[in-house]
């Protein structure tokens, strides 16, 4: 019976040849690992984060063969020949991706820990729909937990990046209104 193109006895290592951020990679890893672990531990691409490793937070999102997926739930044994894009792959040369620019300018990254997953999810959205509305942005990012921002500055940043990608001027960050000089004296 011919059914072992990728047979991997449990204690054996896995030969993994695949593409990461456009570059071919060929390595040998522990066969029980997930894509998340391979990226972080075997490739040193620690930009991809983890917050639960169970698919419950979105921090580990990457784009795999064009689809937004959670790298904590992709077994490395299923990765040979595939192509992954991580947060490290957003930047083209020294230039930041418009999403990165806008996340930085709009305060969308507070602690920055959910940011890689957010950026990747937002890229996946804008690649398909650069005219995404705020509602569509919220929907597309509904698998990414952020405990710092309350999401609103993230929505602002994705909207602004969409504009940049459409060739429109990016709006300045939305600021709170400031009331000055009033006091509580009595």
């Amino acid at each position: 019976m011919d059914l072992v193109p990728l047979t991997t006895p449990s204690r054996e290592k896995l030969r993994l040849a695949f593409t990461v951020n456009g570059e071919p990679r060929d390595l040998v890893v522990e066969s029980y690992k997930t894509l998340l672990e391979v990226l972080r531990e075997d490739l040193g691409l620690t930009g991809t984060k983890h917050g639960c490793e169970l698919g419950e937070c979105g921090a580990c999102a990457v784009i795999l063969d064009g689809e937004l997926v959670l790298s904590c739930l992709v077994a490395a044994v299923e990765c040979p020949g595939r192509s992954a894009t991580t947060v490290e792959g957003l930047r083209q040369g020294p230039e930041l991706h418009p999403l990165q620019q806008c996340f930085a300018d709009h305060g969308a990254a507070q602690c920055g820990y959910c940011t890689p997953g957010m950026l990747v999810a937002a890229k996946w959205l804008l690649d398909r729909n650069p005219r995404a509305t705020r509602g569509e942005i919220a929907e597309a990012l509904s698998g990414q937990i952020c405990r710092c921002t309350g999401y609103l500055q993230i929505f602002d940043a994705v909207e602004a990046a969409g504009r940049t990608l459409r060739g429109e001027p990016a709006p300045a960050p939305l600021l709170p209104s400031v009331h000055r000089g009033s006091t509580n004296g009595r």
């Binding site: 991580t86 947060v87 490290e88 930041l96 990165q100 930085a104 990254a109 920055g112």
Partner: peptide, 8 residues
Amino acid sequence: DALGKVTG
């Protein structure tokens, strides 16, 4: 510290 946060 924005740069490091948006680049990973």
